[in-house]
Design a protein around this nucleic acid. Sequence first.
RNA 1: GGAGGGGUGGCCGAGCGGUCAAUGGCAGCAGACUGUAAAUCUGCCGACGGAAGUCUACGAAAGUUCGAAUCUUUCCCCCUCCA
Length: 414
Amino acid sequence: MAKYKSSFLNEAAERGFFYQSTNLDAMDDYLTTKGRLGYIGFDITAKSLHVGHFIPIAMMRLFQKHGHRPIILVGGGTTKIGDPSFRNTTRPILSDKQIAENLRGIKQCLLPFLHFGDKESDAILVNNADWLNDIQYIPFLREVGKYFSINRMIGFDSVKTKLESNSSLSFLEFNYMIFQAYDFLKLYTEKGCCIQFGGQDQWGNICCGVELIKKKLGKEVFGFTNPLLTTSDGKKMGKTANGAVWLDRTLLSPYDFWQYWRNVNDADVIKLMYLFTDLEIPEIKKMENIQGQEINDLKKLLADEITSIVHGHESLDEIHKSAANMFSKDSTNLSDTTSIPKYQLSDFSKSPIDILVESKLCESRGDAKRLLRGGGVYADGKTITEDYKFQKENFVNGVMKFSCGKKKHILIVI
RNA sequence: GGAGGGGUGGCCGAGCGGUCAAUGGCAGCAGACUGUAAAUCUGCCGACGGAAGUCUACGAAAGUUCGAAUCUUUCCCCCUCCA
């Protein structure tokens, strides 16, 4: 039984994308017509997007699936200022060149999710630097600033928390919401974009935009937020043994990406299925009762589905093969595993410590030693100690599996 | 501008002249148990070194002292209250 008139809202709500929105009924009506425009903004501090961006991206994908047109706004303007809230990490001000580079990387990340182009439901990419860079202070204040009430702004949760905690809120930072509201105004007047999407933490900023357009132009536009992506135990998602879960395969290999989803918490599997896979809702519903060990198979399915969206279906074969090799005792097929980093052993006198450090499995020799003492290093699946010696006869077809813990592996080749 | 309180390792937060590479908690890593999960328990958790030890670190810089995260001075930054 459909709850909403628009297909998009129905599916978005059922899959768990809906947190809150402005005037829901009106937005529902508005979305019954295809080809509507909605945007979401990202800051471009790195050259890749990561799992933290996943919900918004998945939501835009859904938006497009239902015949609407997603606009991805990158914060070329706001990134230049840098977020002042973390005063200890002097974030380097990005040069135009870096921003351009990051922009390209981010677009690359988005390509598997969204179809860009000129047709009705094709996604478009815009950069707020195009209009923020040349803003003139006084005209801007007169045109936009006059619509903002400080009384109102300090009432927003995002600001209130900041004020109540022991950190300062600079004027620069305070302006963020104004710029974001201005972005929305720009996209509304120039492209007719009537919806802004965002994470639940963006609610205040989004409302600002909605209000600005209302006050300045007397038009109603909509805001829609999705819940933050947390694990069932309330932690932030998105860490692997090797760092953040990047979408760019040069930052995180498809194999490690797959492993990330393969290892998610049992309690999160179904939720992630709804959010990030293309499996149909009834199909996922059937999985909800699966318990215990069988959940492992669901995790594989989850990993397969998400990985094939991001890295392509054809990457799965190799990943499966590598996973099978890495988690089995049999070493005979190791040599044709390409997903695992290789280390060329040139000298048999090298110690395990040398290898751990050189292959970047460990950060320092001390680190490597501690790991060895703790029994966390394996050669060919067996725990080794500091004085382990590499010998030719231990290599199968010239390859040996070498692991740090149960999840970080390399292949040593001779 | 005035008064007061602060700045400690990825984060929170003790320490307030030697016994401090710095208690504790969180996060992280490894081990055991499992299901490549969670929970739990155990160990590790600045760098270099086989080790003894050496170096770098408690906002920055100078100083007092045999010796400073701890005392003094100046500077920077943050918070609260007053103007």
